[in-house]
Nucleic acid binder design. Structure first.
Lengths: 367, 367
DNA sequence: CTGTTAGCGCATTCAG
DNA sequence: CTGAATGCGCTAACAG
């Protein structure tokens, strides 16, 4: 634990013992199916059937039993149920490894929302793993899988030769990837955008505005998203017969620092581009910041387009023209696919494509 | 579910059946403690003791058993264990109700990180609840508590007369609040900053820079954070003998739209303030955006200070002078306190104060 | 130091 | 349509 002690001991408040709480405590000692059975004059198995809403039970007895349940405040014990059902109705969500930097990107909260939505509707629960190191993550996934903690796993990342992916694959454990798997593409259900197409479209938009020198600024070139978007960018340039310089391709960190370096490099170029295709809104934010710091204006001096359409892209100055990749949908669909898969192990692997949408705002001008 | 159908059926890939997978599947049928017992020639209870690293077992047999476990690929079943242990070593984390807007604020990912860190170290797991409505949240908490899903709950919000809080209190279920409880303050363990002091300090900083007309822009006035920070601001003004106008107190939404309204109002004032105390970095972002849109510069025309020190406050132009409330710490300490509480129900309620720290950047100038 | 027994709370045969 | 019996995988007395 990296916790630097900081508890003000003098702020400790001792709460008064409350008598009636003691009673509640005693009463609360878990009311089981047996208690309900006794109270309603039936057998435990009947109660169990009522819980499952088994049609072979009379409406009358059902009513009777339900009343008893309510009266006693009965609630089925999940562990017991899981034990016999061999299913936890829980799914594990795995964040990319340095979770600290990952969670910074509004992308993730948004996928989580999507996932969460269907999880809740299906009455599942969600176990979040946000290990700091790759090793930690691996451990957590192991615990989840081996311990039968969860019925399935959603991977919010995709890495080359990833231990976790391989582990899941080897154990034939249900999982889906948000994004594009690096390998075994036909065996792994994944939910993705057509990033190539999106990259091409947004680049074409810039070209349509008259830009001829267009640079690409992306995150790690090891990420498929980056690669795909960049490929789309390349194709667009090529089809338009525009120059496609290596010098116009920059790869940087997802976070702030990246923006700075990228901009410095850009400005150092003898012939500067006029258009910028940036692979992530968060990077754009950094770029924007550094650009104006150096006295340049967007879109007057540089036109900029980017990807994701996180809420931030609306608040920036200028507001970003970006491709909306429907993050929420990515999450929702992946949860849906995973749940299907856990309920029917023979579900074939699918690729689910979420259509994107261009969002035009103020970061682009004619050249 | 608000999912608008969008699966490209034509993109479905059918994966080839693999023969060897079938085998793995069969082998995998859960190796239990009994299997290990048999394989190592001891009784199940001995195996159980080895798992618990019971000192009353010979190192020799331990070794023997462990070897068998490894060989068979044994892993304890969590549900079974939970059932008898009456503990799940899981804790539930509850987001504020419209989780969609809440998760937008980088504050939450950061608390999650803090929580996650100690959760992982203590080998607990974390169940995240992000209901969209208050009702949904209530349901999820009910399931968690009644179903013995989790051993304790962390509330990432605090509302007046909150059903969830009351429910937890009535059931005497272990929970902690990040922030300040609205009621039963002495009975509820909570982790908070001294927001009053922080508000006062940051306002004094502005005063020290020569500002005399200082406005306060806060989130919902129903939130304790807002109230406390505002109280600090008031006190600072008062002690400095400065005017304290109601017209200089604005309450707005946490998100972008808020910024706009607040700024419009501000600019409509006959005597405008020169200093702005903003209760949240995210609001500051909106303010900044609208201010410059209207042709004003920060810090030249307005000096601005705010709270939280989320990563964004470093990327904005200008970078924000803000009070770092140690979000990560808030999360970590709350998890720590909760775990202690679940392990010892008699732990008295505590108030844990996390010290804040001022971070000076570029959004303030002398007047 | 280790084995035997019992039971956690529930679902599910199999009888009736 | 309902009850009795059995077992899920594990831990915890209680014996040896």
């Amino acid at each position: 634990m990296k916790i630097v002690g900081s508890i003000c001991q003098n702020n400790v408040i001792i709460s008064e013992e409350k008598q009636h709480k003691q009673e509640k405590q005693r009463v609360k000692t878990m009311v089981t199916i047996k208690d309900v059975a006794k109270a309603s004059g039936v057998s435990p198995s009947t109660v169990s059937r009522v819980i499952a809403d088994n049609p072979r039970i009379t409406e009358d007895t059902k009513k009777k039993v339900r009343k008893a349940m309510k009266k006693l405040g009965y609630h089925p014990n999940v562990s017991a149920r899981n034990l016999v059902a061999k299913s936890t109705k829980a799914i594990g969500v795995i964040m990319p490894s340095p979770a600290n930097t990952a969670l910074q990107n509004p992308f993730f909260p948004e996928v989580l929302r999507g996932i969460s939505s269907v999880i809740h509707d299906e009455r599942y629960s969600m176990s979040l793993s946000t290990g700091e190191t790759e090793e930690e993550i691996y451990q957590e996934v192991q615990r989840m899988v081996y311990g039968s903690y969860v019925d399935g796993v959603i991977l919010l990342y995709s890495r080359i030769n990833d231990r976790v992916t391989n582990f899941l694959l080897e154990n034939d454990f249900p999982f889906v990837i948000v994004g594009k798997p690096y390998d075994h593409e036909t065996e792994i259900t994944h939910v993705d955008n057509d990033n190539f197409k999106a990259g091409k479209e947004i680049t074409n938009y810039l070209i349509g505005k008259g830009h001829e020198r267009i640079a690409f600024i992306g995150g790690s070139s090891e990420l498929f998203v980056t690669m795909d978007r960049e490929a789309g960018y390349n194709t667009a340039l090529q089809e338009a017969g525009l120059i496609n310089l290596d010098a116009y391709k920059i790869h940087t960190e997802f976070l702030k620092s990246g923006g700075r370096e990228a901009v410095e490099y850009l400005l150092s170029l003898e012939t500067r581009p006029t258009g910028l295709v940036v692979s992530d809104d968060l990077i754009s934010l950094g770029i924007l910041s550094r650009l104006e710091e150096s006295g340049f204006r967007v879109p007057q001096d540089f036109s900029l387009v980017s990807f994701n359409n996180v809420y931030l892209s609306e608040i920036t100055r200028p507001a970003l023209t970006t491709v909306d990749v429907k993050i929420y949908e990515l999450g929702a669909q992946s949860a849906k696919a995973l749940i299907e898969k856990t309920q029917n192990k023979d579900e074939p692997a699918k690729r689910i494509m979420i259509p994107h949408k261009m969002v035009y705002r103020d970061s682009v001008s004619e050249v």
